[in-house]
Write a protein that binds this DNA or RNA. Structure first.
Lengths: 106, 106
DNA sequence: TATATTTGCAACCGAATGGTTTCTCAATCT
DNA sequence: AGATTGAGAAACCATTCGGTTGCAAATATA
């Protein structure tokens, strides 16, 4: 099953998990405590996040700590870049208009 | 049916449509020509994109021109902001390490 | 006016999704 | 050793998704 980041962040629970473990690693049980769902369901989400390398795991005894693979998040940012060019251009155009209006005022 | 941007960009065809109409407005027929799918299928995607206000339409006779609502794309960027803080901190930490190594070399 | 074009909508279909329950396995505790 | 705890896997279920086909409405063209 092909997994991609965009599909991974499509689910709101998954996005919440990402934010939750962004600052510190957590076990599936600890994560599940934050949602109205079962641990098994969280486990499934973690599997999907792991498959597309958005999350990494570190075993510690019988507990497994999950943490965010922040580098992977940059791929979304990279995809956004192509639109960033457009919205910056639009901003510059608005900027130019404002400048012209200023000049005419003088 | 609740639509949100993240679910909208989860589908690869939808992402391709977004990129396609980012630079210029296009009709559903013209958009469908770029994919190995039916016009009706594209129409469905456009409906989803419209529902979450990622796309706006402009009727022109019997044709409807679809174009990207670039402002809405910024919401993804806004969501990414909370992670941007983290990856900038990590970069600064790496930066500090490199600086220390440089000093020790001297 | 009759015909062709552009489009959206409804019905249907197979596949995928998210969730629950049950089970198994490994590590820890008494 | 026996009981408990943390976690993933499998089976199942209702719902959603993406796609196709067929149809209806509106506009343009002959």
């Amino acid at each position: 099953m092909r997994r991609d980041i965009f599909q991974a962040i499509a689910d709101p629970t998954r996005r919440a998990i990402i934010i939750l473990i962004a600052s510190q690693a957590m076990t599936p049980n600890a994560i599940a405590d934050n949602f109205h769902t079962t641990r098994q369901s969280v486990s499934k989400h973690l599997r999907i996040l792991t498959e597309c390398e958005l999350v990494k795991q570190e075993q510690q005894g019988r507990e497994i700590y999950y943490s965010l693979e922040i580098e992977k998040m940059k791929e979304i940012d990279k995809w956004l870049n192509q639109f960033r060019k457009i919205w910056e251009t639009r901003f510059n155009q608005l900027d130019k208009v404002l400048l012209t209006m200023k000049k005419q005022k003088k």
